[in-house]
Simulated assay, not measured.
Amino acid sequence: MGFWGSYVVCRSATPLDDIPAVVKRHDGIDEHELRSGGWQIGRYAGPELADEGPVLLPELTEETGAPALTGFVLNSDTVFVEGFSAGGGHWRACLVREAAEAYCEDDDEDFDHEFPPPEEAAHAAAVWAREAGLLPDPSGLLGVFAVEDTDFAEELFFRLLDLLGIGPTE
Rank of each mutant, 00 (worst) to 15 (best):
F80W: 01
F115E: 02
R43G: 11
G71I: 09
D137L: 08
E105D: 15
H123M: 14
R130L: 00
G133L: 00
L34E: 11
I29D: 02
V55R: 03
D137Q: 14
V23K: 15
H123G: 03
G37N: 08
L95N: 12
D18W: 02
S85L: 00
E63G: 09
V79F: 06
D107F: 12
V81A: 14
C94V: 15
E31S: 13
D112I: 08
L49T: 09
C104V: 04
P54N: 09
D108M: 11
Q40E: 15
P117D: 15
E119Y: 03
V73S: 09
F111Y: 13
E109Q: 09
I19G: 09
A21R: 09
V127Q: 00
V55S: 01
T61H: 07
L60W: 03
G83M: 00
G46W: 11
E109V: 14
A100K: 06
D17H: 13
V79K: 07
V55T: 02
P117W: 07
G53S: 13
G37I: 11
L34P: 01
E33Q: 11
F72E: 04
V22P: 14
V81M: 14
L56S: 09
D30R: 10
T14S: 05
E109Y: 15
E59N: 01
S139R: 11
A86V: 03
H113D: 14
P15Q: 11
D106S: 14
F72I: 03
T70G: 03
V127P: 00
L57A: 01
S36L: 08
T70A: 03
A121D: 14
E59T: 03
E62N: 11
W39H: 02
D27H: 05
G83Y: 00
P20D: 06
A122L: 06
H113C: 10
F84Y: 15
A129R: 00
T64V: 10
F115A: 04
A99Y: 04
G140Q: 15
H113L: 13
E82I: 02
D30N: 08
A100L: 06
A45K: 10
G89Y: 01
E59H: 04
A21S: 13
P116M: 10
A102P: 03
E62D: 15
T14P: 01
P54R: 03
A126P: 03
G28S: 05
R35D: 01
H26I: 12
L95D: 12
V96F: 04
I29M: 10
E101N: 03
E131Q: 00
G65R: 07
E105G: 05
L49W: 08
E98Y: 01
P54T: 07
V22Q: 15
L16P: 02
T61R: 06
V23L: 15
A50G: 02
F84R: 00
G37T: 09
E33R: 13
G53L: 11
S76A: 13
V73E: 08
L69D: 11
G28D: 05
L74N: 08
S76Q: 12
V127D: 00
